[in-house]
Design a protein around this nucleic acid. Structure first.
Length: 422
RNA sequence: GGAGACGUCGCAUAGUCAGGCCUAGUGCACCACCCUGCUAAGGUGGAGUCCUCGUAAGGGGACCGAGAGUUCAAAUCUCUCCGUCUCCGCCA
């Protein structure tokens, strides 16, 4: 939800953002109109209600003989109050509907345009080269007995898989390494529910343009989350947080579920694009003033992970049109996948400023003692998908894979993954 | 799954049976000031959230788990839902 004060006082700023995103500027004018209708409706309801309240006191104090006449007199007023109340509620809903259609205003500097208009901020690490024909992650995974797509399909269908043996261990090692780093940085670990209520799903913005990406359990009116961000954002819904000690940082560990509707035929091989995976997600509640600096910190933690794993990557500033409605800025880190000859997204970190918090009603107390919406940020610290880049980058001619040093402590010191081993 | 009890301003509670004197009382905690040289001291006052009118001072409205209803009037009556607790049943 956008800031209604910003809407009223600086609608042009919102229009500028809408243009950069490729969204309709007219939505801003619609919301402005709905806002003035809403406020007029509230004012007239309140005036009538005040009148009725005053009358009610007279009725209460009146002599029994006079009550009948007085009650008869207010009946018409009561009907007016009722009608005005309905009108106010409707105007309120109309405004919310109009305001909800406007996306979070982008942060100045975010590139305009669509998906292809991203800006590369930096490329880090040397793109790996091989003196043999590199195998793709699935081929390696099968040689190692680590990834089993066939049985995944047998049990659950396309885009499902088993991680077996060293594959299962590798994922746990990666998650634990990420968790240790998060702990060192002061994050509170949180294992989150993966089924959430509709209002939480809606509050985090995933029922908007991504609605068809989400699994829904109609029988129970619950949604399977595609990221623990949903539960982490909902965690402090309707609360007033104490941010005087600094940002509140959570590391959420959960399985993630995605329908991948509309991506048929895309990335069908291996575990690059799957219906279910695990993820360690960073989620931060902080003040609006601190949000941009925190965003940079989240990227720094992500980059440190990727560097430790010996991956080659680039950091991109995602273009406005590709942001999603809640994010005011998003940095993606894409790792080099040798057999694709391309950078593929491994992490994503969004600064949602106060947009998400306003919908979920999460606030903090400012120095003046007033309450104000917090800023929320989120970013990936590790996911199953990273195995793709790790396996491919560190493979050797014989099909074995060198374990990055930083990961070895989490695999009992194992240095090399060898085909045929269990 | 069945039966019952409960959900009140940060915490703890009163108020609900008999709707209007509840702009929700009290205790603790909190903030300011006063008093007092000390370890659960006393006094006075203040204090919630959201919306709205107003340049401001200052008004008005809403909120007693959520929603709907009855009524001139709902914390209080009715219904639905959610949550918590107790007992029974079932259970990987």
């Amino acid at each position: 939800m956008i800031d209604p004060v910003l809407l009223r006082e600086n609608p042009d700023a919102l229009k500028l953002s809408q243009r950069a995103r490729g969204d309709a500027e007219s939505l801003v004018d619609d919301a402005l109109a709905a806002d003035s209708v809403r406020r007029a409706a509230i004012t007239s309801f309140e005036a009538l209600r005040a009148e009725q309240n005053a009358f009610g006191k007279r009725v209460a104090q009146a002599a029994p003989d006079d009550k009948k006449a007085l009650v008869a007199e207010v009946q018409q007023l009561a009907a007016q109050v009722r009608a005005a109340g309905v009108a106010a509620t409707e105007a309120e809903q109309a405004f919310t509907a109009a305001a909800t259609r406007i996306a979070n205003p982008i942060i100045p500097g975010v590139p305009s345009g669509g998906e292809e208009n991203f800006v590369t901020l930096r490329e880090v690490g040397e793109v790996p080269s091989f003196d043999f024909e590199p195998r793709d992650h699935l081929e390696i995974g099968e040689l190692l007995g680590a990834i089993d797509m066939g049985r995944g399909a047998k049990v659950s269908g396309a885009r499902f898989y088993f991680l077996r043996g060293i594959g299962a261990r590798l994922e746990l090692a990666l998650m634990n390494m990420a968790l240790d780093r998060a702990l060192a940085a002061g994050f509170i670990p949180l294992i989150t529910p993966t089924l959430v209520k509709p209002e939480i799903m809606a509050g985090t913005g995933f029922l908007g343009e991504h609605a068809d990406e989400v699994y829904r359990l109609a029988e129970d009116d619950l949604y399977l989350t595609g990221t623990s961000e949903v539960a982490l954002a909902g965690y402090h819904a309707d609360e007033i947080l104490d941010l005087t000690e600094g940002p509140i940082r959570y590391a959420g560990w959960s399985t993630c579920y995605r329908r991948e509707a509309g991506s048929h035929g895309k990335d069908t091989r291996g575990i690059l694009r799957v219906h279910q995976f695990n993820k360690l997600e960073m989620f931060v509640y902080t003040t609006p003033e601190e949000a941009e600096a925190e965003h940079d910190r989240l990227v720094a933690w992500q980059e440190a992970m990727l560097r430790s794993l010996g991956l080659s990557y680039r950091v991109i500033d995602v273009a406005a049109g590709d942001l999603g409605s809640s994010a005011a800025r998003k940095f993606d880190i894409e790792a080099w996948v040798p057999t694709q000859g391309a950078f593929r997204e491994l992490t994503s970190t969004s600064n949602c400023t106060t947009f998400q918090a306003r919908r979920l009603d999460t606030r903090f107390r400012t120095e003046s003692g007033k309450t104000a919406p917090v800023a929320t940020l989120n970013g990936t610290l590790a996911t199953t998908r990273w195995l793709v880049a790790i396996l491919e980058t560190h493979q050797r001619a014989d099909g074995s894979v060198t374990v990055p040093e930083a990961l070895r402590p989490y695999l009992g010191g194992l240095e090399l993954l060898v085909p045929g081993a269990v």
